[in-house]
Nucleic acid binder design. Structure first.
Length: 156
DNA sequence: TCAGTGACTATAG
DNA sequence: ACTATAGCCACTG
């Protein structure tokens, strides 16, 4: 089952399987979209939560049902750490996140973990930047990363 | 087991 | 500020 969050800057698709969010798909808004947000009909609790996250910065609920099965251990630790430690409007470096996840030297592996993040936006990998304040990479395009950060009043 | 890979980083020109 | 480079680590085939 799929459902959508339509935002002026992006569309987020939640892909559900066995009552768990298997992954999210993120794509930049195509030109000429609406100026307000909307969701697909009968949104799940998680989607409602995401809607209000972008509407009025409501924190994401810690129990969003994500399908963690088969995630390699370090990547899971990194993603969980990111979810818990970096809320709306905050940023973290790859190396900082590596340290918080318990392995200070693993900045590069954190980058790989971000690249493999199955749940962009829910797990806020757009809030992870380089130690030199550079933007770093983004699977869905660095332009979108910049816009997501701008929504949170973060300018690099 | 091991070589290859990459959303990194510190350092040197 | 930019480029090159060597070191770094978890994960993969």
């Amino acid at each position: 089952m799929q459902e959508f969050l339509i935002h002026p800057e992006f569309t987020l698709t939640l892909i559900w399987k066995n009552n768990l969010i298997e992954k999210t798909l993120l794509q930049p808004a195509d030109s000429g979209t609406t100026s307000c947000m909307k969701t697909s009909p009968r949104p799940s609790r998680a989607l409602g939560n995401l809607y209000r996250h972008y509407l009025n910065r409501e924190p994401l609920h810690p129990e969003i049902p994500l399908a963690w099965k088969n995630m390699p251990p370090f990547r899971a630790r990194v993603l969980r750490t990111l979810f818990w430690l970096v809320p709306w409007g905050r940023i973290m470096t790859y190396s900082g996140l590596a340290a918080m996840a318990g392995n200070p030297g693993a900045a590069r592996a954190v980058g790989t973990a971000m690249a493999c993040n199955p749940w962009p936006v829910i797990i806020p990998c757009h809030r992870v930047i380089r130690a030199d304040r550079g933007l770093g990479g983004f699977s869905c395009g660095t332009e979108l990363k910049k816009k997501l950060l701008a929504l949170e009043d973060i300018i690099l």
